[in-house]
Simulated scan of single mutants.
Amino acid sequence: MQNKYHSEIAAAVHEDMRDMFKLGVVDKQTMRTFDELCLVPVQPMTAEEIRTLREREGLSQPVLAWYLNVSKNLISDWERGVRKPGGAALKLLNLVKTKGVQAISL
Rank of each mutant, 00 (worst) to 15 (best):
S76P: 05
A47I: 00
L37R: 07
Y67P: 00
M45I: 07
W66K: 12
G58M: 04
D77W: 07
N73R: 10
M1L: 15
E8N: 15
R32E: 12
I104H: 00
M20G: 04
E36G: 13
L95Q: 14
A47N: 01
G86M: 11
K97P: 06
M31L: 09
T98C: 09
L37E: 12
W66A: 12
L37C: 12
R54A: 03
T33N: 10
V13C: 06
R18H: 11
W78N: 00
G100Q: 02
R80F: 07
E57T: 01
M17Q: 09
M1C: 08
M45Q: 06
A47E: 04
S60Y: 04
Q29G: 10
M17Y: 09
W66E: 12
C38H: 07
G24S: 03
E15Q: 14
L106K: 14
L39M: 02
Q29V: 11
V63E: 15
L64M: 08
L59I: 00
V82M: 09
K84H: 09
V13M: 04
V63N: 14
K72W: 04
R54W: 00
V63G: 10
A88N: 15
G24M: 05
V13Q: 08
L74W: 07
D77R: 10
S76M: 15
G58W: 04
Q29N: 09
V96D: 02
H6N: 13
A12N: 07
F21V: 04
G87E: 02
R56P: 01
Y5P: 00
R56K: 10
P85R: 03
G24R: 00
T46C: 10
R51D: 05
M45W: 00
K72Q: 14
E15L: 11
K91P: 02
E55R: 15
E48T: 08
L74A: 10
L106I: 14
L23I: 03
M31T: 00
T46V: 08
G87A: 05
W66P: 03
G24K: 04
R18L: 08
P44Q: 03
T98M: 15
K97T: 10
K28F: 06
L23D: 12
S71N: 05
Q43H: 09
E36Q: 13
K72C: 04
F34E: 02
T33I: 14
T46L: 11
Q29P: 01
D27C: 05
L23R: 10
Q61H: 08
A10D: 01
E55G: 06
H6D: 12
T46F: 13
I75F: 05
D77I: 13
L92H: 01
M31E: 08
I75D: 05
V82W: 04
Q102D: 14
P62S: 11
A10E: 08
E57P: 02
R18N: 09
E79L: 00
D16Q: 11
A65D: 08
M31D: 06
V96N: 07
G24E: 03
E48V: 13
L95P: 06
Q29R: 13
L23W: 13
L39Y: 07
A12I: 04
R54G: 00
A10Q: 06
K97H: 13
P62M: 09
L92E: 03
M45T: 08
V25M: 14
